[in-house]
Amino acid sequence: MASLPATIEDTVDLLATQDYVLGRDLATVVFLALKLGKPLFLEGEAGVGKTQIAKALAGALGRDLIRLQCFEGLDASSAIYEWNFSAQMIAIRTAEAAGQVDRSGLQSELFSEDYLIRRPLLEALSPHPEGPPVLLIDEIDRTDEPFEAFLLEALSDFQITIPELGVIRAETPPIVILTSNRTREVHDALKRRCLYHWVEFPSVERELEILRTHLPDVSETLSQQVVAFVHQLRQEDVFKKPGVAETIDWAKCLIALDAVALTPEVVAGTLGALLKYQDDIARMSGSEVTRLVTEMRAQLALAS
């Protein structure tokens, strides 16, 4: 098990072991979150690596990753714990058949750890042999305000009350990472308790580095062209700007097609890997793609 990083540089190196390339800004926030034990709130466009950082962090520190995927109507029974009703039912029937009449005995048996189904939040607060786990609360914006209010309590005290069992408190609080795609504004009260970071699209150099790390067998020219083209595309007025994940996907597509360099035809054929809205594809088809490819070549020529 790796220990927590001592400096910001250590944080960069630590995450680099998991093939996660990050800028100084994000590294600072991650370092502070680990150092101060505060939840980390990451917001940004889809596909900029918000979820990935939790995975990388868990991998690098050798901790368990516990993921709570949020959705509308998420409630206590799917987020914290639930009683195993069918098992309880059977236990009641058995007790009945055996003629057991001890009421308090039945109650303490039915509502014991044996019949408890642990959900992610409770799991994250329980002790782990590898040290406190990484708790990823993904897409918090998908859930509703009542659950957010509940999280407030759970994240500030790291304790949960189960009426039948009592208070369960984490001995060492987990490393909490919350992500949001901003389909809804998350309440200020929750953000206030976290370190907030808006994850930007990476710069050209960093995206190149990411591409090299993930796909080492792409030729240098192609990866430069790919990154330059994607950056150009992000400047355009498109509905959904392609994220880093799309860049990597697209580069994989190009490898599969044995492309050595970007041409308007190749780009037009694989645009679906980058743009996910029909309007965007329609807007970019034909002469627009040619224009972008020409501009991208001019830019690369200028740079070299």
Partner: peptide, 25 residues
């Protein structure tokens, strides 16, 4: 989200179990 309602369409197992425990199963 659900709310307890006598005319509801789904069984509320949690409430049922609590009630059962109070009445010797």
């Amino acid at each position: 989200r659900f709310v307890a309602r006598p005319t509801g369409s789904r069984p509320d197992l949690r409430r049922m179990m609590r009630r059962a425990v109070r009445r010797q199963g």
